[in-house]
Design a binder for these strands. Structure first.
Lengths: 130, 130
DNA sequence: ATAACTACTTACTTTGGGGTAGGTACTTGT
DNA sequence: ACAAGTACCTACCCCAAAGTAAGTAGTTAT
């Protein structure tokens, strides 16, 4: 009967939700603005760190690496580093990541269709994919 | 030629990104933990405010209303209020929202499949839908 | 010798999403 | 008279996510 505190409500709810709600499970893995974009770019094939940086100019290096790490931890991407003098690191989708591909493409399709309703949006299917 | 400041870089990038990246467009509408869950519950049919509250016990009233409003503004849900004495408000998906349904279901399917790989996750297809 | 390239790391600051805890208006039930 | 139920609103606070800006190591190019 000791005092338990540790700002419990929040953590408790998060844990429960992730265990029981598939949508929450997904959002914990791809939520947060950058992860989906990174994954989206990787659908079209493995990319080097620098390539991703150039493809997503708005992202900061810190954010890119941070999310690449999290995506690795969540088993959505692989990191292959060659131990040579100018570093050469390639990121690619894992099988789990590949399976997410169609979902991301469906999201993009919806965006293009939906944005067309309101005009002022000029994206095409490969704006992000390149 | 007056002073324009308004912490511009961030807003500028956000605007550009939303106009050119379909994935960002989607995430601006359904990102942020609760929106997808609310939409997911509405797939199975219109629901009253109180129903949603009961279906998603972890959400606070503030968050529920806040996101319902944003979803309205983003044209994903309808709000139908009868002007009677005990208020009666029903939320339902708009056509745009309906079109997002399959995407959300695909996300959920992926979650169930993916979580099965690691065990410790016991969700089924209707854990959230009820 | 100095800049440029690679893929990072670290320290510091800001911002806004989310939580807590109250209140509102109006009616029905006891 | 007072609680209970409906669907909200408001002010305040906190923390984690995101941004800023700098540094690291080792090599090649000028």
């Amino acid at each position: 009967m000791t005092k338990v505190k540790e700002s419990s409500t929040r953590n408790y709810n998060k844990g429960i939700a992730e265990m029981t709600c598939p949508i929450t499970y997904v959002m914990n893995k791809i939520g947060g603005h950058w992860k989906t974009i990174i994954l989206y770019y990787l659908i079209s094939g493995p990319k080097r760190y620098g390539e991703l940086k150039r493809l997503i100019p708005a992202i900061t290096e810190k954010m890119l690496i941070q999310h690449l790490k999290q995506l690795q931890e969540d088993n959505l991407i692989n990191r292959k580093a060659e131990d040579i003098v100018p570093p050469h690191v390639v990121y690619s989708l894992t099988p789990s990541g590949e399976e997410l591909g169609p979902v991301l493409l469906a999201m993009a399709e919806w965006a293009i269709k939906d944005s067309a309703k309101y005009a002022g949006f000029t994206a095409t299917a490969d704006t992000c994919v390149k």
